[in-house]
Design a binder for these strands. Structure first.
Lengths: 237, 237, 237, 237
DNA sequence: TATGAATGAGATTTCATTCAT
DNA sequence: TATGAATGAAATCTCATTCAT
């Protein structure tokens, strides 16, 4: 949907796998292998740390350390912290959006079921992974780093919303949904999920006494409410 | 639907006029003595700046400047940036929660109407004011400033959720709502509103080409959907 | 002995004249009384705090507070921290030196006994009182505050050493002491006592596990050693 | 006796030459890489400055400058001013104490001679070097920096006193000394020497008109007095 | 005379980025 | 390529002193 040419999207680079492979390395030519894996390792370390601490508060040396290289090496691959961040976003999120796009296009069946599927998919792939925290960072630091904000909007937000609006529209067209505004409904759909994710990545990560509901249950309830409302139906469903 | 009419969504609190009129003046600012007014002015400046830039990225000197005083004066009133932040939260949010609590206790009438009222009230008092941005900061910086997170949770999040859960419970008790989990439903209720506010205070504040819906309309739709669902009712409501 | 003209020694120059003239007054109006006592109270507070923390590390506001007045008032009496310090020195030490001078001049009897007396007197009046700590400060901060150092040398150190040298000379002249250098012997005399005092006011004031001997005993031993030596006498004393 | 021949009493450690030759240079100091030498250079600069100004009054940037590096570099080697201070103490004093300990253990000969030797050794290695000023700082700032005080006591004071007490005990055991208290005698021994050093590093370093005796002579006299007393011996020694 | 609010230079420590090796 | 020592701008907080009241 977005005009971006999302070439690396399809690669579906696993968010943190490389980091987990690294400690147990067994390549025959370890020197060589390592060199090729560097960008992946750096990106994985960046994802973890940016989500944990935010963009400004993450020290580039720490990223390098966690990836097992020196500070200088990081700058060999990415000329600045901003570029590192962008690369990490592309790696972590853009590919997921492409996948979802394919799934939606191919789906045949009732729209409520498609909506279920899309939301659960997002929850599983993004909400539950560290990638979900990226949005938290961007919301917080958008105004301090406008160029990053702009990038993120084009690369992630707009495409995602377009995808969801498409699903709503499908339901309206087929008479399965009431004739609401797709764009606005998307906001209502996204809201609680994102809120849940943000919460997990912020207060949820602190050791507070959180009366934290099971997110999966909240998600189920949300879908149920959105589809059928809080008020009991007068006649049988 | 309206593509761009959300202009004054976030009501920018007017900075201390004198500070803004005299950016280039050289005279050492004739040392005004006004102990009474200072805290308010500092808190207002702090609110603006913290929401704009976040906790860590806001320089305390900048807060002082915007309040029209010197760095030292700020520390005369608040012993640290953290304490300034806390005071600002108490000033901006705690009082609102107390008001809402009173309103809910006194309300007589159908619960859906009460829910409407509470949500619109929050939107008007918090969502539309800079205070709404405080949550954005806290989500972003909770993990870097655990003590602040804990404070915010106790002072704001927990009371707010308790209040809303109380409303849901009222509806369930009276048969007006289906027997859902109040705590979880609160998450679903809060989600989109908070998301909207966060969005306004982050991407919305950047000069992006946002297909940003009118928030008030989104809010209305949300309440409608939550009460009646996306799926059309089989019989007449 | 030193070329200094120690005129003010005898005069016991009253630091803040009005302050010393007024200690015995009994003005009926308590308001009045207070005002006259101010300098004394400030000087007392200054002595305590300067000895405790040093010159630079003592905040002038703290001195004012301990004296029960406001910061502004302190500056009404003493135009700067340096002047306050000087006044305090005059008040605390100069008068003692004058007293000792009189005692020495009037003493009739064997010199070893005079030496005993002088040293015990110094110990009782200075060593045991907070005033002893002033030397600690001066030693530490002399190079950072040369003017203060110069003042202290003229006002305290030189007169004291001259007095002691006079006693030694008396012993030599009468054949009671070996013909040593009075000036140098003064150093040897002063050393351990001052060291003891400095130690009390520094490490001794910390909560360390000090194998701290009873200072009075150390003093007695010192005098004994200086008079009779460490080596046992070959024949009967 | 000699009125003024104590010129180079305190051997000023030569500052890093390059740093002093180029105070006005503008070129950004061609970033030398010399990890090996840095700690030594920094420690030397720290010693000089701490002794000159005290712990609190020495700015860490100044230490860096005198060592010819930037502020940041200092913090690369020592994580805080306190740690820098400790490292400097270990470098300057702890090693000397170890040396003295060995010498004492190996010495064979009369105890008065050993005492002579120890005291002269201390004078030469510590008293005459900038390291002697460290005690001045510690005495002055012990109460403001208790942790530093504790460190210094354990690392320097206690071991030194133990060593000297051991020598006195040796003399008593062999009948060479009268049966005095070793611990207390140590105080008497240390006192004048330390006093001399403190004086040199404080008032002595100011441009005062000091009737300052030659310290070496004072030291000799002190030892003589302590061994044989002020009072003339009735019979021949 | 007495107050205490206000000021602003200054001190420590951090970190993105550079560059000699 | 890779390293990591070096830099220096910044950010928080302190405190002697001033001055309006």
């Amino acid at each position: 949907m977005s005009p971006r040419k999302n070439a690396p999207l399809v690669v579906a680079a696993p968010a943190v796998p490389s980091a987990q492979e690294a400690p147990a390395r067994k390549a025959p030519a370890p020197r060589q292998r390592r060199k090729e894996a560097r960008p992946q390792e750096l990106l994985a370390a960046a994802l973890e740390l940016f989500v944990e601490k935010g963009f400004a508060a993450t020290r580039s040396e720490e990223v390098a350390q966690r990836a097992g290289v020196s500070k200088g090496t990081l700058y060999l691959y990415y000329p600045s912290k901003e570029e590192l961040f962008k690369a990490m976003v592309r790696e972590s999120l853009s590919s997921r959006i492409a996948e979802a796009s394919v799934m939606i296009a191919q789906f045949e069946g009732p729209t409520p079921q498609l909506l279920h599927r899309v939301m659960h998919m997002w929850w599983a792939e993004v909400g539950l992974s560290p990638a979900g925290g990226i949005t938290k960072i961007m919301m917080a630091e958008a105004r301090n780093f406008p160029e990053l904000a702009s990038f993120f909007h084009e690369e992630v937000i707009a495409p995602t919303q377009a995808l969801l609006a498409q699903v709503i529209q499908r339901g309206i067209d087929s008479g399965e949904f009431r004739p609401v505004s797709p764009q606005m409904t998307v906001q209502v759909l996204i809201g609680p999920m994102l809120h849940l994710v943000l919460f997990q990545h912020s207060f949820g990560a602190c050791a507070l006494h959180l009366p934290c509901e099971n997110p999966a249950d909240v998600l189920a309830l949300e879908i149920d409410l959105l589809l059928h409302g809080l008020c009991p139906r007068p006649g049988p469903g």
